[in-house]
């Protein structure tokens, strides 16, 4: 019981002592703070700091040198981690740049294609036909139909039957039109027929109709209905003939390049078949032009 009676007294004494020391320390801090804050650069407390630092600076220097390997070791780990972080960052940058390069290449390709189309339009004097650029938005996946979708429709002045060209030459004609898009039948489609002629005449150009040589073959066309004994040679150029009859207006204006003769079956005979390869790669179309002012169309 004696112990229990003494405990509160000892406790109180201890608490008082503790509080006194704490108060003293806090007051010391405040005095130091106030004094240091109020004194000039050459004041006593700063002199103490300088003097103290002169003593401990060699210790600091020695410790710094002694601990350099430890710093280097930790730094090495840090650098390694940073390097890993850099790798991730650089990979992300590389991927972004790769996408940019792809986009730039695509833009350059588009630029080339559009420039070529413009040059062809100017060279062939197609400006009067109201060429309207369109982007190919779909390809018909069926083997039986050679068709593409474009992003221009009736709201852009596109109508059914309008001829469609690309930078190399004739592509086809408009089959169906919606307000914002259109479906184009390619010249390789089995329903297509294009009045055509040879570019050179011996003595005069050979007339015929260019049709598909078979469903699903985008690289081969055939020119039928040529006059007997007409002279056509391999590598001759085939172009659209335009309208030859007042009764039957052609959908296509004259002199649009179609393709180049590759072979002739039964040459000179009534049933001769002139095969040609289209100038336009019809499987890789990105941009086309719709001639909107042929045969009294709307035009620009």
């Amino acid at each position: 019981m004696k112990t229990l009676e003494l405990s509160p007294h000892v406790y109180d004494k201890s608490v008082r002592r503790r509080r006194a020391v704490l108060g003293l320390l806090v007051v010391s801090c405040l005095i130091l703070l106030t004094a240091y804050f109020g004194e000039s650069a050459g004041g006593g407390l700063r002199s103490i700091q300088r003097g103290f630092n002169e003593i401990i600076s060699p210790i600091q220097e020695g410790a710094s040198r002694a601990l350099k390997p430890a710093r280097d070791l930790v730094g090495w780990f840090g650098d390694t981690l940073d390097a890993k972080g850099d790798v991730e960052t650089l990979r992300a940058e590389r991927d972004a740049l790769r996408q940019e390069v792809v986009a730039n290449e695509a833009a350059a390709r588009e630029n080339t294609e559009l420039r070529a189309q413009l040059e062809m339009t100017q060279a062939l004097g197609l400006g009067d036909y109201g060429p309207k650029g369109a982007r190919v938005i779909n390809y018909d996946p069926s083997v039986w139909y050679s068709r593409i979708g474009i992003d221009k429709g009736s709201s852009d002045g596109i109508r059914e039957g309008m001829p469609v060209i690309a930078s190399g030459g004739l592509v086809g004609n408009v089959l169906e039109v919606t307000r914002g898009s259109a479906q184009v039948t390619l010249i390789t489609d089995h329903t297509s027929g294009v009045p055509a002629r040879t570019n050179k005449g011996r003595p005069k150009p050979v007339q015929g109709v260019v049709e598909s040589s078979g469903a699903g073959n985008p690289n081969d066309l055939v020119m039928n209905y040529t006059p007997p004994r007409s002279t056509v040679r391999v590598k001759d150029r085939i172009v659209t003939s335009g309208t030859n009859s007042r009764r039957f207006e052609s959908l296509y204006p004259p002199n649009l390049p179609i393709g180049q003769v590759t072979r002739i079956e039964d040459p000179g005979a009534d049933s001769q078949e002139i095969h040609l390869r289209p100038y336009v790669d019809l499987r890789a179309l990105e941009f086309v032009q719709v001639l909107t002012a042929v045969n009294g169309g709307e035009g620009e």
Binding site: L25, V26, S28, C29, L30, I31, L32, L33, T34, A35, Y36, F37, L45, R46, I48, Q49, F52, N53, I56, Q60
Partner: peptide, 13 residues
């Protein structure tokens, strides 16, 4: 505070 030339008293407090 002394070693780093800080305002004396802050770190102590």
């Amino acid at each position: 505070d002394v070693a780093l030339f800080h305002t004396l008293g802050i770190s102590s407090l």
